[in-house]
Design a protein around this nucleic acid. Structure first.
Lengths: 334, 334
DNA sequence: ATCCCCATTGCATTCGAAGTCAATCTCGTT
DNA sequence: AACGAGATTGACTTCGAATGCAATGGGGAT
C-alpha cells in the first residue's frame, strides 16, 4: 500500500502466480482468459492497487486515447459550455482531453508542437487553422474536426452553426420592421465566425440598400459598450438597430444604450446578438438572438472524430446546423 | 513527408549519421553534445518532421509532464476564468493539462481511475475530495493542490479565497445599515465553498440576533430567481436583504426582485453575491460582492504544484487570499 | 612526440504493457 | 483408451526515447 513505486503488471502477475501476459489480457475486452484466472488477477490487482499504465499502453498500441481540444477565448461565455459538453462526451467514450487554451484565435502554432509530441489520436479545434497547419494534421494521419469553422480551401471535417442563415433571419426581421440605419459591432479580425456573421449581415443590408456603420469589438462586454458609443458618434446619434457579432457584446450595447444614452431598448433602438448564451436570456436583457444547438453540435463533433479515429480513411464531412431564432425583447422584429 | 508512420529518433539518427543517443541528447537541456552534431541532428529532424514522442519519453523518465485539472461546474462562470488562467500558466511552464470536468462536485471517484492510469505528475482539484481520495494521491506520491477547498482533517496544499472574512465583510456592512430580516440563498449541499460562505453569514447574523431564512440553490441564474421567490414566501414578503452564495444567483435574484416583485434594488431590498465574476459588474446589476483574486490564486496554485512535483517532500502549505469588497450598487452597505 | 584529461559519442539496457506464436490443457468423441 | 478441436497460457519481442557506462577523440602541457 505504502510503496512509493507503483505496482506494474509484473508485480500483479507474481502476486497472482500467473504470467504478465495474463494480467494484460484481463484488462482488455474480449481477450482469451479463463474466468478463474481473471478472478485471481483482479484480486491481486486490487490488493496491490494496480492501475494499468496508460503511457506504456499507448506506446505499444500506438493509441494514446488522448484527444486535443484547442479553444481560444475561454472567457467569452460561449466556449465554456462547449468545452464542458465536449469533455463529458469524450470522457464517456473513454477518451481523455488534453486541453489547449489560446489567448488569441491565431496563436495555434505555439501549441501544435505539443500536440504532435503527445501523439493525440485526434483533435477538435475551435480556432483558426491555416492550410499548412491543416496539412500538418493530414500528414500525420491525425483526424481533426473543426468547430464553427471550415477549412478554407482544404477539405476538413467540421461542425458549424449556420451563421449566414441565422444572420439573415435577424437582419430580415429588422428590415421588415422599418429599421433603416444600422450599426454593426464585429468581432476581432482574426475570428472566423465573427467575420462570417458580419459579412452575412452586411450583404443583406446592402441588398436592401440599408445604410450601415461597422466597428470592431473583441467579443466581450466592454467592447459592446465601446462599440455602441463609436457607432453613435459615427452615425450622428441616429441609429435604428445594432447587430452584434455575439451576445456578450449585445449585452454590453444594451446596457450602454440604456445607461449612457438613455435610450429605450427596443423602442428607441433594436439590438441583436448571436449564440444564445445564458446571460442573453436573463430578464434584464432578453436578447433577440440566434441560439446555437450546442448539444447537438458537440455530439456531432465527438462522433465524427471518433469515427475517423477508428477508420482513418473516411472522407471529410461538413455538418451545418441551423440556429434557432430567439425573438427575445431587445429588438422589434417583423 | 507523406509517410504515414512518423519519424522516430532512430530515423533521425540514421539520416544524420549519428546514434540514437545523440538525437535524444539534442532534445534535452544541458546534455553533453557538440555544436556540430546538434546542427546535423536538428537539420535531419526538420527534414523528417521529427517530434520527440512524449509518450515514450514519459515511460522511461517516469514523468508524463501531464497535470490533471479536475473541475466541476464549468458552466457557472467562475470556473472558466480559473481554467483559462490555469491552462495558460501551466502551458507556459511546459506542462500539459489533462482536463476532467464533473457534472457534480461529488462525482470525483469516476475520474480518479483515469487520473491514476495516465500517471499525471500532479493535480489541481476544484471539487470535493474525501480523506480516502486524498489518501489515494498521497499513496501514489502525486502532489495535489486544492482550489478553494481544504482537506478536511487531512493536510493538503490548498489555495483559497477567504470566504469567511469576505462574507463577514458583506454581512457586517448590511447589519450596519439597518438591515434586520435576511434571506440567504445557499449553494448545493455538496459544494464546499457554498457551505462555508453560508455558514459564515449565518454565524454573523446569529451573533447579531438578526432574523434569517435559508433556501438552497444550484449556483445558477434560475435558482437565484427561485430562491428569492421561496424566501419571499417564507418571510411573508418582508425582507431587508438577501445574501447569495455566488454572483450568478445574486443576478437571478436581482432580476426577480425587480421584474417579478417590482422592488427597487437596493432601495427596497439589498442583494449581495460572491466571486466578482464578469456579469456582476455589468451596468444592469453592479452586484455588491467580494471579488476573488483569481490571477494571484491560480498563479499560487501552479507554482505550489510545480514546486512539489520537483521536490515531493515539501510539506503541504495552505494559502489564503483575501477577497476584495466591491461595493457595487445592489446593496446599502455601512 | 608523448601523455593525460575531459568532452563527445555509441552501445546496450530500461521503462510497462500488448500481442504473436507455440505449447499446454480441456473436453467431448469415437 | 486414444484423438482432436478449441480454449488458455506463458515466453519473448516490441513500441520510442533516455541514460549509465565504456570507448573514442581532441587538445594542451611537458
Amino acid at each position: 500500500m505504502k510503496s512509493r513505486r507503483r505496482a506494474t503488471s509484473y508485480d500483479v502477475a507474481a502476486h497472482a502466480g500467473v504470467s504478465q501476459s495474463a494480467v494484460s489480457r484481463c484488462f482488455k475486452e474480449g481477450a482469451s482468459i479463463s474466468h478463474k484466472t481473471r478472478e485471481k488477477v483482479m484480486e491481486a490487482a486490487r490488493e496491490l492497487n494496480y492501475y494499468p499504465n496508460a503511457i506504456a499502453r499507448g506506446l505499444i498500441t500506438q493509441r494514446s486515447n488522448l484527444v486535443a481540444v484547442i479553444i481560444s477565448n475561454l472567457t467569452n461565455l460561449y466556449y465554456p459550455e462547449v468545452l464542458a459538453e465536449l469533455t463529458q462526451r469524450l470522457s464517456a467514450q473513454g477518451v481523455r482531453v488534453l486541453l489547449f487554451s489560446l489567448a488569441a484565435e491565431s496563436d495555434v502554432d505555439e501549441v501544435l508542437d505539443q500536440v504532435w509530441q503527445y501523439r493525440v489520436d485526434g483533435a477538435i479545434v475551435a480556432a483558426r487553422l491555416d492550410p499548412s497547419q491543416l496539412a500538418g494534421f493530414a500528414d500525420r494521419g491525425v483526424p481533426v474536426v473543426l468547430y464553427n469553422r471550415v477549412g478554407e480551401g482544404v477539405p476538413v471535417s467540421s461542425v458549424c452553426c449556420d451563421s449566414i442563415a441565422g444572420e439573415y433571419a435577424l437582419t430580415d426581421g429588422l428590415l421588415a420592421h422599418e429599421h433603416r440605419r444600422f450599426g454593426i459591432i464585429a468581432g476581432p479580425a482574426d475570428s472566423y465566425v465573427g467575420e462570417e456573421r458580419v459579412n452575412a449581415a452586411v450583404r443583406r443590408l446592402d441588398m436592401n440598400g440599408a445604410e450601415h456603420f461597422v466597428v470592431r469589438g473583441r467579443f466581450d462586454y466592454a467592447s459592446g459598450e465601446e462599440g455602441l458609443k463609436a457607432l453613435m458618434r459615427e452615425s450622428g446619434d441616429r441609429l435604428d438597430a445594432v447587430i452584434c457579432a455575439n451576445d456578450l457584446m449585445a449585452v454590453g450595447a444594451i446596457d450602454c444604450a440604456r445607461g449612457h444614452f438613455g435610450l429605450r431598448v427596443p423602442e428607441d433602438l433594436s439590438i441583436v446578438g448571436f449564440d444564445g448564451v445564458g446571460p442573453a436570456t436573463w430578464l434584464s436583457y432578453q436578447v433577440t438572438t440566434v441560439r446555437q444547438p450546442v448539444r447537438r453540435m458537440t455530439e456531432a463533433a465527438v462522433s465524427m472524430l471518433l469515427e475517423r479515429i477508428e477508420k482513418p480513411d473516411i472522407s471529410p464531412e461538413q455538418r451545418l446546423f441551423a440556429g434557432e431564432l430567439l425573438p427575445g425583447a431587445s429588438a422589434r422584429l417583423g
